[in-house]
Amino acid sequence: MQPIHLENVKKNYQLDKVQVSALKGINLTIEAGEFTVIAGPSGSGKTTILNLIGCVDTASEGKVVVGGKETGGLTEKQLTDLRLHTIGFIFQSFNLIPVLNVFDNVEFPLLLQNKLSPQDRRDRVAKFIDRVGLTQYAHHRPSELSGGQRQRVAIARALVTKPQIVLADEPTANLDSVTGQTIIDLMKEINAAENTTFLFSTHDHSIMNQARRIVRLQDGRIQDKA
């Protein structure tokens, strides 16, 4: 089963009296374990696509299937559950909970899921914090960490529930190029080891060229599939 499948997806925004077509008919299928980049200039619709796949927004037209479920027919509550159980998010600005330390931040999605025993949960959190190399920072608050370290925490948080899909909208945009590169390397490494499906957007050429698959977006349309 493909984790992501988009069929003739259109998304229109109403801006005052003008209608903006952000996506003009997108067909896209992503296979399990893929490491895909959505590339395109600013305003081309990258965020819009990720919002639809991330189930935080719904399409104006067409079919969006995520984790085997068509999102158009789901209620807000069901969409929230789908996000919790199938998707891991990595945000451009890291978006950690400022009052929680690294450990608590990573643990949070597991608490929401409420599936593991306290002991299993702690083991899992420790494992993923170790995976991103932050074991010695487990009790630090986000404000005590560098940007790169914060994004590692975000990666651990996105992966800790072992989601089918990890989405990241320009995860390196707020990092310098060296740090950005280490983040991409980490994501690639986890993708290879765990076979997690990664989908992230960028407009940075040096980064998009490292992906196994690039989806080029221009003005709300996919240009070619390379």
Binding site: G54, V56, E76, K77, T80, D81, R83, L84, H85, G88, F89, F91, S93, N95, I97, P98, F108, P109, L112, Q113, R157
Partner: peptide
């Protein structure tokens, strides 16, 4: 706002 949006995105229900 961002924090709450993030929590909602990663799967926290409105009621929570």
């Amino acid at each position: 706002t961002t924090e709450i949006g993030t929590l909602r995105a990663i799967g926290m229900q409105k009621s929570k």
